[in-house]
Design a binder for these strands. Structure first.
Lengths: 137, 137
DNA sequence: CGAAACTTGATAACAATTCTCATTTTATTT
DNA sequence: AAATAAAATGAGAATTGTTATCAAGTTTCG
């Protein structure tokens, strides 16, 4: 079973990375890269957009921050519109269906907790599918 | 309270849309637009990529198919790495936190159902937040 | 039929993100 | 502290997925 684990280069200290992490912690939660960039530009003389993205990815890969986004790049389309969720294999990238039973009354509970009007819920699981676990592909 | 509901133009019949929908139904589940485009190009003399995207969006807006993607365009970053979920207000686009309690044992249940190794789960709710409901903004 | 509304293809435009590469920092070894 | 290797940076080009534009073709319905 050959499952590729992302190689983690050692992280050296860097002023820019420190700035990015602090800015992320001290400001609005869940900012986009663009939002962070604007703040960083003001406070911190100059930083490259590439540096920002590079560091956000690195921090996320190392579990220091979390990147919030459903799928990786492109959208997928599904003709099955019944309530159900999805699992994406990080190895083969296939998208599997997961029954809605795994989270009963999900919307109802979330509405009760927040008072928001909730029209939709999506769950995306990530991991390794059985095929990849067995075949090591 | 002024909540903008997307205007739905009437859908006339169109050969291309029919082809797209059939291709989506008769093939691999959850394809990307690119995947569909390749099939359609082969089977169906010519179709424009723009037409494909236009129709996929239209079909999704009318609930005939489902578009699977977590957030809209750009990723958001979160320094809170504890298990919790997110709600995106379709009106003001703010991202709110939702406690993990709304889906107890989520990963465990999904693992039991599938046998997959699940490393991560993301839930994204959509709807209208209280602020927007009250202020009508 | 004939007008109004809808759809199409081709291509330009766009936004978010990643890549390239020469230079600079940081860490490690002597 | 000098030499060397490894990692980080900035600037901008490049890539990717998707949407906008617009003139021409279709569908709908009175």
């Amino acid at each position: 079973m050959r499952i590729v684990i992302k190689f983690r280069a050692k992280m050296n200290y860097s002023k820019q990375r420190e700035n990015i992490l602090n800015t992320l912690k001290e400001n609005v939660v869940h900012p986009t890269a663009e939002y962070l960039y604007d703040i960083l530009k003001k406070e911190n003389s100059n930083i490259s957009l590439a540096t920002l993205y590079r560091n956000l990815n690195q921090l996320a890969e190392n579990g220091i921050i979390k990147k919030i986004d459903g799928l990786e790049s492109s959208s997928h389309y599904d003709h099955n519109t019944h309530e159900h969720y999805h699992f994406i294999c990080d190895n083969c990238k296939k998208v599997y269906d997961i029954s809605a039973d795994v989270a009963p009354n999900l919307v109802k509970k979330a509405q009760e907790e927040t008072g928001f009007t909730i029209t939709n819920s999506d769950i995306v699981f990530h991991g390794i599918c059985n095929n990849c676990k067995n075949k090591g592909e």
